[in-house]
Design a protein around this nucleic acid. Structure first.
Lengths: 215, 215
DNA sequence: CGTTCAAACGGACTTTACCCCGGTTACCTT
DNA sequence: AAGGTAACCGGGGTAAAGTCCGTTTGAACG
């Protein structure tokens, strides 16, 4: 939602606006930490920040927009790791390994930010997923492209794999359940992802100290 | 202690309640057809049905509940085809073929009912997916089980594949886009699904007249 | 038939997301 | 430095979701 890249540049953001955004994000984080996502209301946020309600809406457009903005913050750090961190997540490792590592990292990211990710999902929007698809999807697609899968529709495959990665945590597992057994879910989904990717690329299953089923 | 197993029904639904539900569903369908999903409001529905607002909420609990109820209706017919229709969707074909056919059918189902499916997604709920996962997921899991995939975590794999099937249409493709190029999307996602499934099961790619990329 | 009661009903009430527009202010131009 | 302007601010206004509770009614039972 911000401009890490040079926007078309209609105009730079005004100083007071930028400052207010920071204040609002900080307050939102506080409310979230203290009272949980359900208690984050636009009026409440405005009041706590000492600003008008209109300002909040101008900055974020919609309630989900706040969650997206907060999520973007976290995603920036994550993206950094992917684009220029150490392998296998960052560049330098084989595409297959990077793909597997990326899945595990994204799973953990989503588990860690599940409230934000859920909140960013807007019920009444034509494209519910805000910023959370493009980056993932593009990265996955680019790694797939390096794997020389013949006769595959890479765009579709990347979309489906992205969904396979995000879907379980966004759609099919309750937030409470994730909170309760987060680590175990991370492990199972991570292994599942690795397995799925190896199958998709027709790579033999990893050998080594794999002590059988996980249960 | 209690009755043998007939614990399923604490009480039959009262006649007026059942009648009112039908009226409400019919009215909802009309409003949807005439004015689109955004215009379907609880007050409007109640008024049009000549009932109180409280009644609407008692029947469906939430706005998304109405969409889920409408979706269930359609899903019942679909489910029938899957459980006892002709192969390859219904029983009788090889698991792999059924899986592929199921994916294509579900894609078409979701495209056909995209408004309902989207509306059934509730922003503020711990488990967004209403009725739309279990059946799909269970069926996919059961077909996978017949394929003897060694060393796979079937529950996780089924969840991920379900997400790969639903996710693109629920999360990553705008409703407008789907409306515009529905048939093409159906084809591409369908082929993508078949390809994905064949890869997952390590089956050789289908031959025959596959004229390369679809674009 | 009356009695009884859980369930259903209605609609006023509360809360909250989102809109609007008059007034204000930061930034650019000259 | 002055002025113009586009962007920003505030907060009251609207609509729609969801809640509450007193009233009504279907149906099981005697």
């Amino acid at each position: 939602m911000n401009q890490p890249v040079a926007w078309g540049r209609p105009r730079a953001e005004r100083a007071d606006a930028a400052r207010n955004r920071q204040v609002l994000l900080a307050c939102a984080r506080k409310i979230l930490a203290e009272q949980g996502p359900d208690r984050l209301t636009m009026d409440g946020l405005a009041e706590r920040a000492g600003l008008g309600k209109g300002t909040v809406f101008r900055r974020f457009g919609t309630r989900a927009g706040i969650f997206q903005a907060l999520l973007d913050d976290g995603e920036r750090a994550f993206q950094e790791q992917v684009l220029s961190g150490p392998p296998p997540l960052g560049p330098g490792a084989a595409p297959l390994d990077r793909l597997i590592a990326y899945g595990q990292a994204r799973i953990d990211f989503l588990i860690g930010h599940r409230d934000l990710a859920r909140g960013a999902l807007d019920g009444r929007e034509s494209v519910p997923a805000g910023t959370q698809s493009p980056m993932s999807q593009i990265h996955i697609r680019s790694l797939l492209a390096q794997l020389s899968l013949d006769e595959a529709d890479l765009d579709v495959l990347a979309t489906q794999l992205t969904a396979a990665l995000d879907g379980p945590l966004l759609l099919y597992l309750s937030s409470d359940l994730i909170a309760e057994v987060g680590p175990r879910i991370s492990t199972r989904l991570g292994r599942g992802w690795a397995d799925l990717i190896r199958r998709v690329t027709c790579e033999p299953r990893a050998r080594a100290g794999n002590p059988g089923q996980v249960r």
